[in-house]
Amino acid sequence: MKSLLKNRLTWPLVALLALLALNQVFRADFLALRMQDGHLYGSLIDILRNGAPTVLIALGMTLVVATRGIDLSVGAIVAIAGAISCSYIASSSDPSSLATAGTAAAIAVVAGLALGVWNGFLVSVIGVQPIIATLVLMTAGRGVAQLVTGGQIVSVSNDHYKSIGAGYAFTLPISILITAAVFVLAAVLTRRTALGTLIEAVGINPVASRLAGIRARNIIWIVYVFSALCAAIAGLMISSNVTAADANNAGLYIEMDAILAVVIGGTSLAGGRYSLVGTVIGAFIIQTLTTTVYTLGIPPEVTLVFKALVVLSVCLLQAPAARNALRRFRPAPKLPAKEKVAI
């Protein structure tokens, strides 16, 4: 029991279950799942599907945050990925074929990777604070996306492409399956290799990591590339779901949701130990919160107020521990500026 209370996934999970229960109270069929034409339907499936892009991006963000970084550019990368793939499809000679959809997705993903390389370069090689380095792409990225789409909302009609965000396979929405696959990829990438341990080591104690001979530069570079990859896939999903690329609004503020999911999931913004499962739970809490607000009949936009309260309460819960550790013992930490948490 004690270990259950101590486990940092316990409280996020309790919060998620409480939210689901609340919904069930207000809508008796909330938890019900039904099968129709071989597809699963229900509010839970909706939450999973609508939450998929946030989960994806939050997974990438988790690793970035674990290294004491942050990636503000993911929203812009979402827009760019959607813009590139939809523009490619719209301008291709065979806009409805599988090959076109595949090529479009591939180009978008490669573009995403390139943007991740760029972010990683600024942070790990040039040594710019992460928040500032990614701010550049956050600002310019939407412009680039609009440049690609020519300022239009580019609509496509390609069933194959549409299936990324809105299709079904094995009775489940494909977006959920993709997200699950990326989750598995992240888990394997970090736990089957030494990446996870080294990321945590760099995030927990950069000084000791350096003295142990860890090449932090490569590690940090990898997490930004992975974050951008996740954002690009989320961009495909979002644009495919509405069969159009909206350079202005696709993925707007999704970086904030992702950071929020990471924090709720128990990964500290000060870096160090991370939990991919926690992040997934965190992202679903945010999505369920949105759904709950709907269920309760409150205008959906007001969700933001609840989000603000959630952020504050999570941070305040995390704060005293951090404070006690830092304050009484060493009132004046002599960390050089560059080793401060980069936020």
């Binding site: 904030m256 933001l304 504050l312 941070c315 936020i343």
Partner: peptide, 20 residues
């Protein structure tokens, strides 16, 4: 002792939410 980034992000959500 919470990072300004997070606190003002919450402030942003709150203010924008209150608009709605």
């Amino acid at each position: 002792d919470i990072q300004p980034f997070i606190v003002t992000l919450a402030g942003m959500f709150l203010a924008r939410g209150l608009c709605y």
